[in-house]
C-alpha cells in the first residue's frame, strides 16, 4: 500500500482551489452519510444495502418465457431478448407500472415488451424464434443441501401473459 509521507500540505495550491475541492469531498461524504442515516438512495448517492437482509431457507425466482405458435414455451434471457432491460430492472419496472399506473398501463407495458422482443428479433439483435405470447412465472424452492432440488421447483405460478394481437393478462 502507499507509503505515508511526512510532507506538509501543498502550499502551491491556492486556498480557493483547496476550498472548492474540500466542498466536493464534503459532498461525497455528507451525501452518503445522509443516505446511510436515512436508509435511502438518491442516485448517485446510496446506502449500499447489498445483501443486508437475512437469507431465508426458501427461495423464489421469476422467469420469463416466450410462447411459440404451437404452444410450446421457451425460456427467455431478459438481458439479451428484452434488452436494454436486465434482470434487476425488469421485474422492478413491471411492479412499479402495476402499482403506480394501474391495470391498463400494466397491460400496455406487457404488450410493449412483446413488441420489443419482436423488434430485436427482426433487427437480428437476438436469434430467438418468433413468439406469439410472453409469460412470466414465479418458481419457489426450499433450500436443500447441495441445492439438489434446483431443477425441480416446488411450485411454479404464472404471473403475467401478453399475446400478440390479443389482450394482455395479469394473473394475480
Amino acid at each position: 500500500m502507499h507509503a505515508e509521507t511526512s510532507h506538509a500540505a501543498d502550499d502551491s495550491m491556492s486556498p480557493a482551489r483547496r476550498s472548492v475541492l474540500s466542498a466536493f469531498f464534503a459532498l461525497l461524504i455528507l451525501g452518503h452519510g445522509y443516505e446511510i442515516a436515512a436508509r435511502s438512495e438518491h442516485w448517485p448517492f446510496s446506502n449500499y444495502p447489498m445483501y443486508a437482509g437475512l437469507a431465508s431457507d426458501r427461495v423464489s425466482r421469476k422467469v420469463i418465457v416466450g410462447v411459440l405458435p404451437d404452444g410450446r414455451e421457451i425460456p427467455l434471457e431478459i438481458n439479451r431478448d428484452l434488452s436494454p432491460f436486465d434482470n434487476t430492472r425488469f421485474y422492478s419496472a413491471m411492479h412499479r407500472v402495476s402499482a403506480e399506473r394501474g391495470p391498463a398501463a400494466y397491460a400496455h407495458a406487457l404488450k410493449q415488451l412483446l413488441l420489443r422482443y419482436e423488434q430485436l428479433r427482426v433487427r437480428g439483435d437476438h436469434q430467438g424464434p418468433a413468439i406469439v405470447a410472453l409469460r412470466a412465472y414465479e418458481m419457489r424452492w426450499p433450500v436443500l443441501p447441495g441445492a439438489s432440488n434446483k431443477d425441480h421447483p416446488n411450485s411454479r405460478k404464472r404471473l403475467i401473459e401478453a399475446r400478440l394481437g390479443g389482450a394482455a393478462e395479469a394473473v394475480r
Binding site: I29, I36, R39, S46, Y48, P49, A52, G53
Partner: peptide, 13 residues
Amino acid sequence: IIYFAAGIAKLRE
C-alpha cells in the same frame, strides 16, 4: 464509503 455503508446496512437490517 461503499464497504462501510454495506456493513452498516447489514447491521441495521
